[in-house]
Amino acid sequence: MSSAWQAVWAIVKKDILAELRTKETLSMMLIFVLLAVFIFNFAFDLRVENVREVAPGVMWVAFVFAGVLGLNRSFIQEADKGCLDGLLMTPVERSVIYFGKMLGNLIFMLVVDAIALPVFSVLLNLALVRWDIALIVVLGTLGFAGVGTLFSAMTANTRAREVMLPLLLFPVALPLVLAAVKATAGVLDGAGLREVANWLNLLIGYDVAFLTISYLTFDYVVES
């Protein structure tokens, strides 16, 4: 067990190290997340009266789109440089590779979310840096990264791969995003976490279901 986690950690460390050398993916995601907020600002004319109603949707759409950018690069980079074959040749179970890549993606997304939240708070004039919102962000991002990593391994091997990932991922992840938006809107309206418990339960249920499905099917996705 411990050696499996060591292997998972080695893959995570490799992805973080590669990212720190170039900082390409993270900076792309960050710029995109800010761009999305700017665009929404002009599209919705976010003012003090309506910002509370629109902010959860704006926030999650920005997170999800930025997440797809990161996910897209996650396996395409591996495939293009021939690193995927190297990874697959390592004497570890395929699920180790899945959890390593998934954790790497999760960390990148959470870093972007963590930087974006205070910026959103300033731009939208809304207190978003709160522990209950942080919990919702972690739960929502976990499920999104979980199924996103599975699909990004799939689309790296298809035609029109950059387009295929969001097409595959968005409908499947939509209920998750919906639950995250509803929960965020609930706590922004002053409800406690207990009052949005049914949305949190849906989030947790989705996280568990998607991580399990991904864990069970990842073998077949990277099989050559």
């Binding site: 199924v147 599975l150 699909f151 799939m154 091997n157 298809t158 035609r159 029109a160 295929m164 097409l167 595959l168 409908p171 499947v172 209920p175 989705y206 279901a209 998607f210 499905i213 991904s214 099917t217 077949y220 996705v221 099989e223």
Partner: peptide
């Protein structure tokens, strides 16, 4: 999207495997 996914993969074995994974994940 399941039907679309099948169209963008040329290799028959891979097409079947990916479609099966999506058929399972999509059933949620």
């Amino acid at each position: 999207t399941y039907l679309l996914l099948r169209r963008v993969i040329e290799d028959p074995g891979r097409r079947a495997r990916f479609a099966a994974v999506y058929g399972i994940a999509g059933f949620v």
